[in-house]
Nucleic acid binder design. Structure first.
Lengths: 333, 333
DNA sequence: CTGTTAGCGCTTTCAT
DNA sequence: ATGAAAGCGCTAACAG
């Protein structure tokens, strides 16, 4: 345990704490000789500013938190890199946190963000209602939410993809190419992402006149294992679907695992499409047809919104930005 | 900006700040009626403990930082999950930070960890010498380092794989199966990982009597793009190697991209092996032969060491734990 | 260019 | 079972 405080440095160099403080912060002119001397003494004593005390005084931390549901899904690390790309150069540190899509974790991290007086929060919540973010803005943090419905009357910015149209486009493609025997594997039925992607799929089917049976929409997890499980259920049916739309790429990878394990050819026997265009999509064979949502750009956009609030450049009502998506047709469908 | 402090709550409920504090911390018995009343008032006022002030007093944050070079390489998210798996249930929050393998970032994050008085640090540094971790322990943090050489006379624990033997085993496999025409693609020549993996490769070659030419060891980045670049250099030679050992899976994926793009069959024309056994290794086709190092378990082990120090259960000299590895032969070699 | 003073919001002896 | 008072280490008025 170091015990060297600004006072120790001040005493040892014969100046006031204020001067030492200013030597470090550069917030007011200091005589060059004094400065050198103080710096020298500080180094010798091994002085290290106490950021906690600084924050208590200044109410700033130069730190932002990025909360994601599953750091293990390559979409989120890419997203995180996107925000770091923009807030890092502006002098903010990025802390990434993983909730495992558990409500308790989500809530706990909101508390941490407020309690530690972070400057900003980029939140991708699955379980917690958006309204939980209100206290966070009230606590003085800049916040940007990932999600399609901006919270009215708030100063919370949001970023999203047009989920329903994006899924719908893929679904249309699948039906046109492989006919009406189609199924959907998704996850998080209670969460916005889940709902909204399912809605996109069902809406497209309705428009195309495709009748969905009760087994055509299967609920699982947003992981490769989830995809395995979902696909098994589909392929165990007496009338397995000709094509399957997955709510994200991880699910699609699992689905492909099962198809392969059963000796089915993709797309000749089953066509599969994913969502996200995560990097392994071009690794898997056949390469995955999916909807590109450009995680990194998504993150960068979120970072820009956050930054503009933290710097005070903007402080009006919540803004909403929609990131474009694109169906990228490869070989799996 | 909320302004509700413990004092406000105290005033509004007619008790002392001390009592309010104890109501929240539970660190001393409080009359049930008083407690209820205080809690009620606190809720009504929207009181939220200020974690920064708490930390300034208590010198604890219940927070640990995990620093990794590239959050975009699936190895690290898995590793991070491993540490979260063990320290999370013990009541610590995990902050993941990405350095991009840049020295300035590594240093900056060490400063943040010390300055914010975090309780623990798990550090995977590429550029910064291990000795930079000494001040961190002196600042009172528990620290575990990822790397094969424990820092003597320190209280820094370390976790590692036996890199040279692991690479050597793979190399031996390659040479026995495909002969002496072998090359190595790696990265971070100046960093420990880089050095140590290269050493493993060269050592194995020496033992096997394989003569390495100057172009047989190529230096690039630890990414898929790095693999692309490295493999191109290899395949542009008049005498391309029969097999290539890659220093991690991301490089191997890039190498496979190039082989495929040039119409080479894997492993019939070039055999490729990776290192890490990251999840896409079983997605790519042919599936990647690689050295499994079990990132999640690795992280969990690091977490356990850290935890035992943070709880005070252990506080002796630096421990060193070696995680087993295993060559998993799939189809790419 | 430098110093004095007063807290930031909380926890913790030490009393009662 | 409860309070009063003293800081944790730092910065920001306000003086010179």
């Amino acid at each position: 345990m170091k015990g060297v405080t600004i006072g120790d440095v001040a005493a040892a160099s014969g100046v006031s704490p204020t001067t030492v403080s200013h030597v470090f912060s550069g917030r007011r002119p200091i005589n060059a000789t004094t400065r050198q001397h103080v710096e020298e003494v500080a180094r010798r004593l091994g002085y290290r500013p106490n950021g906690v005390a600084q924050s208590l005084r200044t109410r700033r931390t130069n730190t932002v938190m990025v909360v994601v549901p599953d750091i293990t899904n390559p979409f989120y690390p890419d997203f995180a890199r996107g925000v770091q790309d923009v807030v890092g150069p502006a002098g903010y540190h990025c802390l990434f946190c993983n909730t495992d899509a558990r409500e308790a974790e989500e809530l706990a991290l909101l508390e941490v963000a407020m309690s530690r007086r972070l400057d900003g929060l980029i939140f991708n919540g699955f379980r917690v209602p958006d309204s939980e973010l209100l206290p966070v803005t009230e606590a003085g943090l800049a916040v940007v939410n990932l999600g399609s419905v901006p919270l009215p009357d708030s100063t919370i910015d949001s970023v999203c993809f047009e989920n329903p149209p994006a899924i719908a486009e893929a679904t249309r493609f699948l039906v046109e190419r492989y006919g009406p025997s189609i199924a959907f594997i998704y996850a998080e039925a209670e969460a916005r992402v889940g709902k909204v992607r399912r809605a996109g799929f069902e809406e497209a089917c309705r428009e195309l006149g495709v009748r969905l049976g009760p087994d055509d929409v299967v609920l699982t997890e947003f992981t490769r294992d989830g995809g395995v499980e979902g696909m098994r259920r589909l392929l165990d049916r007496p009338d397995p679907p000709r094509s399957v739309q997955c709510a994200n790429d991880m699910i699609a990878f699992g689905a492909m695992d099962v198809a392969r394990e059963r000796g089915l050819r993709i797309p000749e026997d089953v066509a599969i499409v994913g969502f996200d265009d995560v990097f392994p999509a071009t690794l898997v064979s056949p390469r995955l047809t999916t909807v590109r949502t450009d995680a990194r750009r998504f993150g960068a956009e979120a970072g820009r919104l956050l930054l503009s609030r933290m710097t005070g450049e903007y402080d009006g009502a919540g803004r909403h930005v929609v990131i474009p998506h694109e169906l990228v047709v490869r070989e799996s469908a």
